[in-house]
């Protein structure tokens, strides 16, 4: 039952768990408001028990608002694996809930995931992906790279042709640079 330090790590592991057991895995999001701890109020009852105003002021100064926390838990009852992440920052809420929908919810619904998400998963810095996941990432990357190469090749070909048309045989390299500058 580990708490992960980063939400990325939690997200990655949860995604892997969902991939392995999409039917039984559930994600629990618990928003908990705990009572504020009166930290200085230990001394006040003994020293100034008659003056109640003192105690109230001290409690209000130490912790004014109740503290909230958000705990995300991915649990699979069949394997018993349980992954947790806890935060108290409001800034993370929107992103976390969105992540419940986009990689995780989509995986739950068995929707085909866009490739970008997989690449992100494979490139997650702290995470060690399963061999299958890494393979997929590797497969996806060379494809993209090859596409890019093909595109650049065609571009250079057209550029060189244009350059030849303009400046003869020697102007291939120069034409490239000029064209690129012109495009920008």
């Amino acid at each position: 039952m580990p708490y992960y330090a980063t939400s990325q790590e939690w997200l990655h592991q949860s995604s892997l768990l969902l991939e392995a057991r999409p039917t039984t895995t559930r994600i629990t999001t618990k928003y908990h408001i705990s009572k504020p701890k009166p930290r200085r109020s230990k001394k006040t009852p003994s020293t100034s028990s008659p003056t109640t105003s003192d105690t109230t002021t001290t409690t209000t100064t130490t912790t004014t608002a109740p503290r909230g926390s958000l705990t995300l838990k991915t649990y699979d009852p069949l394997s018993g694996s349980c992954l947790k992440y806890r935060t108290t920052k409001a800034a993370e809420v929107s992103r976390l809930i969105q992540s419940l929908g986009r990689p995780l919810g989509a995986r739950m619904a068995a929707l085909p995931l866009p490739e970008a998400a997989d690449e992100l998963m494979a490139e997650a810095p702290l995470a060690q992906g399963t061999p299958a996941e890494e393979k997929r990432g590797e497969d996806a990357l060379p494809g993209g790279a090859a596409k890019g190469q093909v595109q650049t090749q065609t571009q250079t070909q057209t550029q060189t042709q244009q350059g030849q048309g303009q400046a003869g045989t020697g102007g291939g390299g120069g034409g490239k640079g000029k064209k690129k500058r012109g495009k920008k």
Binding site: T29, Y31, I33, A65, P66, R67, G68, S69, L70, T87, T88, K89, A90, A91, V93, S94, I97, Q98, L100, G101, R102, G105
Partner: peptide, 18 residues
């Protein structure tokens, strides 16, 4: 989930603001 995130963000008011 877009709407869900909105509702949660506005509902979870006791979390630390940024």
């Amino acid at each position: 989930f877009d709407r869900y995130a909105e509702v949660c963000k506005s509902g979870m008011a006791t979390l630390k603001p940024r």
